[in-house]
Simulated assay, not measured.
Amino acid sequence: MLVHICCAIDSHYFLRKLREDYPGERLVAFFYDPNIHPYSEYRLRLLEVERSCRQLGIELIEGPYDFESWMEAVRGLEKEPEKGRRCAVCFDRRFEVSAAKAAELGEKSFTSTLLTSPKKSLEQLRREGEKLAEKYGISFLAPDYRKASGTQEQNRLAKEAQLYRQDYCGCLYGLGIQREQQRKLADELFVPLSGQIQPESIEERIALYEERIRLEEAGIPYRIVKERFLNWRLEWALLKVGKESTPSHILPYSTLKKPFTRGRIDGEIAPLAFLNRDEVKFIGLSDYNRLAGTRYGTVSELLYAPPPFDKELELRRELIPSFYDLSPVIVVDKIPDRKIEFSMKAHSFEDVRERLIPLIER
């Protein structure tokens, strides 16, 4: 039996139930989810599915990440709600490829872990699956593992295995609609040009879950705990000195009350220089290098290969000891001596992140 996999939260429980109900079946897991966006989120979910399948001893096949084809398939349905027409097209596509893969492998049936998702319509999934099964001459199994406290058992197993629990279905449009309803920033879509890993970003989660696998392979016990913190994302910034655009690097947790300010440097307490408006502060690259222990030749070099986020945060705390100061701190090649125009849009917001703690016996 080929089992289409959407995520580890659903598959870990679903695969165990299939084993109980179909003990004679050889299960082949098939991860095919080109709807998941961004790609880093796709890699994170696949990482967890790989771990789950290893624990269960089930073969896993990864399907193609043909995201562009999926986008074309749902064109015009961007504003559809959850369980609407876009979801039907999405199921059709994933079920079509899964049914074709099952027939290619000589399997007689296929099913999908989407059936256990409480956010999906069981009847809609069953209808689409049976239609495609008939097309490929195989059967579609649609067990209802949500009933009889199945959803509660699924959540218990996920918690016990400390599985990554995503908080949106996966697609770009579903994410946008959900964050808009929550009045939250879709920070999953923020990836700096520099490649610097941001706090509570998908890239940070991938690093955490890869380290978790390393600890498991080494037999080291651990806990994953959650912590509430102040997060930050820079959307864009532009510095002009004497009307000329000037390379600048913005330190973490810099915010501006309004998107635009202008003024002149009216004082300096080394290594910081102060704009006469809106708490804006500047630091020259030579001082940045000295304090950060770096050797950048220009701010442009710094922009595309900055130090890790935490190291820059330490530098900010050295420059401004207060934990509560959100003033803009701007790194420049040299302190401006002409009229300054500065525009920036940044977001500081309450958030929750995970932390991996190895448990070492004393």
Rank of each mutant, 00 (worst) to 15 (best):
W232M: 02
R277P: 07
L285R: 04
A270S: 11
N289W: 08
G297L: 13
E217C: 06
N231V: 06
A218D: 12
E279I: 00
E216W: 02
L285M: 03
F274M: 13
K226L: 09
L234P: 12
Y296H: 05
N276V: 01
L215S: 04
V241Q: 04
L234R: 03
L275E: 04
R277W: 10
A237G: 08
K240N: 06
G293M: 02
I224M: 09
A273G: 06
T261E: 06
L239E: 05
P221N: 07
S286K: 14
R214P: 03
L239P: 11
W236L: 07
V241R: 05
G297N: 15
A292C: 13
A292L: 13
E244P: 00
W232K: 03
I250K: 12
W236Y: 14
I269T: 04
G293D: 12
L230F: 10
R214Q: 13
G293Y: 02
S254G: 10
A270E: 11
A237C: 08
E244H: 12
G297M: 10
S254V: 00
R277F: 11
F229K: 04
L215N: 08
V225T: 07
L215A: 00
I220F: 00
L291T: 06
F282K: 02
R277G: 08
K240S: 05
T261H: 04
R264M: 12
D287H: 14
L272R: 03
N276T: 07
S286G: 07
L215R: 09
G242P: 06
K257S: 12
L238S: 13
Y288S: 11
G263A: 12
F282R: 01
E268H: 10
T255V: 01
P259S: 11
L272S: 05
H249L: 07
E235Q: 14
L275M: 11
P247E: 09
T246V: 03
P252W: 00
I283Y: 01
K281N: 10
A218M: 08
Y288G: 09
P247A: 09
A292V: 10
G263I: 00
F260V: 06
E217M: 08
